[in-house]
């Protein structure tokens, strides 16, 4: 019978990912490329919002887009066609989120040497992407009106983590029982530093405000 040894570990399951994410953030700072992690449920309007936003920002920044999807390249093709910016698809091979390792491989593939700003469109899901730090400089989420105002209560972690919460499809407000005041309160309860911006990507409402928010964030990040 071979001798059994017990080794005490006492380490978070996320420790290796957190470490890798921090290294990635330092690397991005060093290269001067700002990475935005964009999260939402499926159908909240990530691709439409991103397309409109990129068209506003592309005269000031060299932009790239990394689309994460379980297995397709529909979004990458649509973004590339509608904005003309460099775009790649990261396949997560069935995983429900991106981690720092997958993000790093994506950055190698897209080649950041000629990019100032990269949008990472995470897998459409409010649970898993919130758990894994991608190494991004800014975490952003989109909540759309048809999903309901109770999402900050049901999925608190993602709201705690995000710097910016975009509320999309406000043109649909008359058709849904979406209590905007309650939604704001629940977001601020989880995250008092969150910025909240209301938009309708389809009707170009609020996109300018989101673009200005990013310009400010990038400026402050560069000066830091």
């Amino acid at each position: 019978m071979e001798k059994i040894r017990t080794i005490t570990v006492n380490r978070s399951a996320y420790a290796d990912n957190d470490l890798e994410a921090n290294i990635l953030r330092e690397y991005l700072k060093d290269k001067g490329t700002f990475l935005v992690n964009l999260m939402s449920s499926p159908g909240a309007g990530k691709t439409t919002t991103l397309t409109k936003l990129i068209n506003l920002l592309k005269k000031d920044y060299r932009i790239g887009v990394m689309e994460a999807d379980i297995d397709s390249d529909v979004d990458a093709l649509s973004i590339a066609k509608n904005t003309g910016v460099k775009s790649i698809q990261i396949h997560t091979s069935g995983m429900c989120h991106l981690d720092a390792g997958m993000t790093k491989s994506g950055l190698e593939e897209i080649d950041i040497s000629d990019l100032d700003l990269i949008f990472l469109e995470n897998v459409g899901n409010l649970v898993c992407p919130a758990e894994f730090d991608t190494g991004a400089c800014l975490d952003v989420m989109i909540l759309s009106v048809p999903e309901g105002d109770d999402k900050p209560l049901k999925y608190p972690l993602i709201f705690e983590k995000c710097d910016l919460v975009i509320i999309n499809k406000i043109d649909a407000l008359p058709y849904f029982n979406f209590d905007m005041e309650r939604c704001y309160q629940d977001i601020y309860r989880r995250n008092k530093n969150a910025t909240i911006i209301q938009i309708s990507a389809k009707n170009n409402i609020g996109i300018n405000e989101v673009a200005d928010y990013f310009k400010n964030k990038i400026k402050n990040w560069k000066e830091k």
Partner: peptide
């Protein structure tokens, strides 16, 4: 749903540790 993601990260850390030890 993210159980597999966590499992993958845990296994990676344990495999590294097992090799080191």
């Amino acid at each position: 749903m993210h159980e597999l993601g966590i499992v993958v990260h845990v296994i990676k850390q344990i495999e590294d540790l097992a090799t080191k030890q």
